[in-house]
Design a protein around this nucleic acid. Structure first.
Lengths: 104, 104
DNA sequence: CGTTGTTATACCAAATATGATATAAATACA
DNA sequence: TGTATTTATATCATATTTGGTATAACAACG
């Protein structure tokens, strides 16, 4: 969805850096991206305090590279994975809810 | 992930009805499912008050059948889609955060 | 310096989620 | 009742997300 817009620009010779800076997103799309980034940052914080990326990956049957992407806001990472990872760090629904509620 | 467990049982001759009832899920998996169901229910409530499934679908570039599945907790529906749909009903991050925080 | 532990990047095949379509079922209401 | 509107179910090709692997970059420390 962001991917489509990105490709449209790239095909016209544009080079994309930080996407959300000048790619026109609808307000909803912007919020969606911000929610993912907020979860991403929180995941990194929490995980760093208690384990390595390898350990977290194995807890949720994922891989270290994917955890790295999750923590770096790579947009190939879904909210699904972010939430599964958060839960594996011991985050409660309340924790996750607060992070999302704080967006915007 | 749930799918794998389901197939494992079905291959042994079991017939699955309401999955989460007797399929052993880890606490994290249970919470994850509950979050999706909570979003699902809230989506249905909100959407019904203001538009049809067709209208909501077109707002987010989806289809009516997929909205139906989203509202019925079909587990082919990702949290991604649930949140995009919620936002399209005007739900704020705060609204969504509260729904998630109330799980468990 | 080299070694060890950790995280980042690139690529890919397989799994999963998706929107589209067709159509059935349910609901409302004349 | 019949008919229009809305929602549910089934199928499917495509798109996206996934975990695995290899490997690079980086940091800590002897």
């Amino acid at each position: 969805m962001e991917q489509i817009k990105k490709e449209r620009l790239e095909s016209k010779g544009w080079k994309i850096g930080i996407v959300s800076d000048f790619l026109e997103l609808t307000p909803e799309e912007t919020i969606f991206v911000e929610i993912k980034l907020a979860l991403s940052r929180s995941l990194k914080d929490r995980r760093q305090k208690m384990m390595t990326q390898v350990e977290l990956a194995s807890k949720i049957g994922s891989s270290q590279p994917r955890i790295a992407k999750a923590e770096n806001g790579d947009d190939s990472v879904s909210i699904e994975l972010l939430i599964r990872a958060m839960l594996a760090t011991g985050a409660t629904p309340k924790d996750i809810g607060q992070i999302i509620a704080s967006v915007g």
